[in-house]
């Protein structure tokens, strides 16, 4: 297998892992202000308490892997999206701190402040991730050297903004379905209502984004013309999405959450399939940054592949261990947030 393609796939896997795992804890953050009552808020916060930090590591490793495998794409995207990236960084800091500090004092003002900051930072991070992905896939203005030259306003394209909203709705739905697994009683019924609302918004936005992609962004379809069997994926995503209401109606939270994971995985796959073999699509006459042009040397890609082959099984083991230790409903004890 071409090492460049392998690394494109590995980055896709990291992004998928990030979207599925951090997706639900970002979603929990977005839903958090809807929760009434301090104990309930603590329950909801502690449902992601032991997990959010490990979930974020997927992003950090994605960043490191992008830097190592495709340094030119890393440099172009991060310096080109300067202020949005800084905004995401500040949001991730804000989130970490809000989760950690919220319950460290009983003052009402203190808790209200951190609750708001938890909500806002989760929302902003999710939105900007979505907009950034929309821009990378939808195309931005590159110079001949492959630098982004469109300025801040060039990032506010309708398609990218729609993907941003899609990300927010998807995270909210995913978070609500996750909470269904973790909380009990009246709170769970409440959460189920939110899951329904978020589900319909998410499906609606999926249709909007799909419509915009089909009509306005023709290069997204090139790979589907080349490999018609790729059309199976949107169908699978549709089936996974349709399975969510079944899980909700029959009151099988695990089924609903698993379907949500599958639909997010499918959507990440679709984005990657539309992008391939590019990493950053150029909307100007300059060529796009593809996986050959922006890559590190073959030797480094091979070396990194070895590191990944050693590391990935370990990562899977740790992740599975932690999720196993913290399975089941949340309970508050003296070590909780």
């Amino acid at each position: 297998m071409d090492l460049h393609v392998l690394w494109f796939c590995l980055l896709g896997v990291l992004l998928m892992g990030y979207a599925i795992l951090d997706g639900f804890d970002l979603g929990v953050g977005i839903l958090h202000p809807l929760v009434r009552g301090d104990t309930e808020r603590r329950l909801v916060l502690n449902s992601i308490g032991p997990l959010w930090d490990g979930n974020e590591v997927w992003l950090v490793t994605f960043g490191g892997a992008l830097f190592a495998a495709f340094p030119d794409a890393y440099a172009t995207v991060l310096s080109g999206f300067y202020l949005p990236v800084i905004l995401v960084l500040l949001s991730l800091i804000g989130r970490a701190i809000s989760i950690e500090f919220r319950s460290k004092s009983t003052s009402r003002f203190w808790r209200a402040y951190w609750d708001f900051s938890f909500f806002l930072s989760s929302l902003v991070a999710t939105l900007v991730f979505g907009v950034a992905l929309g821009n990378v896939v939808g195309g931005i203005e590159l110079s001949a050297e492959g630098y982004y030259v469109g300025g801040l306003s060039g990032l506010l394209q309708p398609f990218a903004l729609a993907v941003g909203l899609l990300a927010v709705a998807g995270a909210a739905m995913h978070g609500a379905l996750y909470l269904q697994l973790k909380v009990e009683g009246a709170l769970r019924l409440e959460v189920r209502r939110w899951a329904w609302v978020a589900f319909f918004v998410f499906v609606g936005l999926n249709l909007v984004v799909a419509g915009m992609a089909l009509r306005g962004v023709p290069h997204l379809l090139l790979n589907f013309e080349r490999w018609p069997f790729a059309w199976a994926m949107p169908v699978l995503v549709g089936l996974a999405l349709a399975n969510i209401p079944r899980g909700l109606v029959r009151d099988r939270p695990l089924q609903a959450f698993a379907s949500s994971c599958a639909s997010i995985a499918g959507l990440t796959f679709l984005a990657a399939a539309a992008l391939y073999p590019n990493l950053v699509v150029s909307s100007s006459s300059a060529p796009s940054l593809d996986i050959w042009r922006s890559a590190s040397s073959e030797a480094t890609l091979r070396l990194m592949a070895i590191i990944a082959m050693i590391g990935m099984p370990l990562v899977a083991t740790y992740t599975a261990t932690v999720y196993w230790v913290f399975r089941g409903k949340v309970e508050l004890d003296e070590h909780s947030y």
């Binding site: 490990g54 892997a65 340094p71 040397s297 590191i307 590391g311 230790v325």
Partner: peptide, 27 residues
């Protein structure tokens, strides 16, 4: 990127996952 990025990626995969995973159990 070819050199420095590799070390940074190795840090992510070998160190950060280990730390963050077991930190949950620790705390």
């Amino acid at each position: 990127g070819d050199v420095f990025g590799s070390a940074l990626a190795a840090e992510g995969i070998f160190a950060f996952f280990l730390e963050s995973g077991f930190l949950a159990v620790l705390v």
